[in-house]
Design a binder for these strands. Structure first.
Length: 278
DNA sequence: AATACAGCCTGGACGC
DNA sequence: TGCGTCCAGGCTGTAT
């Protein structure tokens, strides 16, 4: 599932493949829900003739800077993928939206589970202003993170998943960061001390940077698996805790447990991440 | 304010 | 092999 590292990998791949500079000849919206609340016709009409500029990111949103002051925001949600391919390659039944580019290429939005969304707007702030700072924003500091965290009274895992708090973290990198910082995911955010706050902040950023260096995490082999630029992410082997319930902890040898927090599977080591501080 | 939960989806894993 | 059931989860909307 795409989180910050996977989204950034997708952006890097599209940029490297030379999407910026290409112009949209037409768009074929094959699943109306993908562009809601616009109708497929309205969306296609808005994007026709627009040229792609630089591609940026905030949290898990891909921000396509377009000509004529337009922005296309894309959210991959669970299974969304962009693929840039020659016109001759054709399309796939799971392509929910296909951009026909003037250079005889296709930009295909492939999304098996259909949760992904594209928004074409002149006012991207309407969507992006609801997000907290990006988790890898160079201006984001540990002290800001800790202050904000302590001002809330929530289970720390639930708070980290809240995109209005910090944008970009999802289930995998949250669990990895909490494990590396040795913090129990059920801890209330206002009970973490300064040292724990710094540890968590650094651990989360390290988990994200490692994921990015490995081109993201691909979990399985199937249709719903994360792929970018035709390649799997290699971060699975770096995971210490996510998906390893029932296995032995690499740090202490204890059994890794799985619980549910905020309706998400949460993996942790009870010995390394005790709820009560020693 | 925080929490819970349904809903959106469908491939894949699993049990029988 | 095939069928049924459950699970995965980012995010929104609604209820408590």
């Amino acid at each position: 599932m795409p989180e910050l590292p996977e989204v950034q990998t997708a952006i890097d791949d599209l940029t490297e493949a030379g999407l910026p500079g290409s112009r949209i000849q037409s768009a074929d919206v094959r699943r109306p829900a993908t562009v809601r609340p616009l109708s497929p016709e309205a969306f296609a009409g808005q994007v026709r003739g627009l040229r792609f500029g630089p591609i940026r990111r905030h949290g898990k949103f891909i921000i396509f800077t377009m000509s004529h002051d337009f922005t296309i925001l894309a959210h991959l949600r669970m299974t969304g993928q962009f693929e840039l391919s020659p016109l001759s390659e054709g399309t796939d039944p799971h392509d929910r939206l296909v951009f026909f580019l003037e250079d005889d290429r296709l930009l295909r939005f492939h999304d098996t589970r259909t949760f992904g969304r594209l928004i074409c707007t002149r006012n991207p702030g309407e969507v992006l202003d609801r997000l907290g700072p990006d988790a890898l924003d160079p201006d984001l500091t540990a002290s800001f993170f800790i202050r904000k965290m302590r001002s809330r009274h929530r289970q720390i895992k639930a708070l980290l998943l809240d995109q209005g708090f910090i944008a970009g973290l999802g289930n995998i990198y949250c669990d990895e960061g909490l494990f590396a910082a040795r913090i129990n995911p059920l801890r209330r955010s206002d009970t973490l001390d300064e040292d724990e706050g710094v540890r968590l902040f650094e651990a989360l950023r390290t988990a994200l940077r490692t994921g990015l260096a490995n081109r993201g995490t691909s979990l399985g082999n199937g249709e719903t698996n994360y792929i970018s630029g035709g390649r799997r992410g290699e971060n699975l082997r770096a995971l210490q805790i996510y998906g390893r319930d029932g296995e032995n902890c690499n740090r202490c040898g204890g059994r890794i447990e799985k619980i549910y927090i905020a309706q998400r599977g949460t993996h942790y080591c009870p010995r390394c991440q005790p709820l009560q501080r020693k």
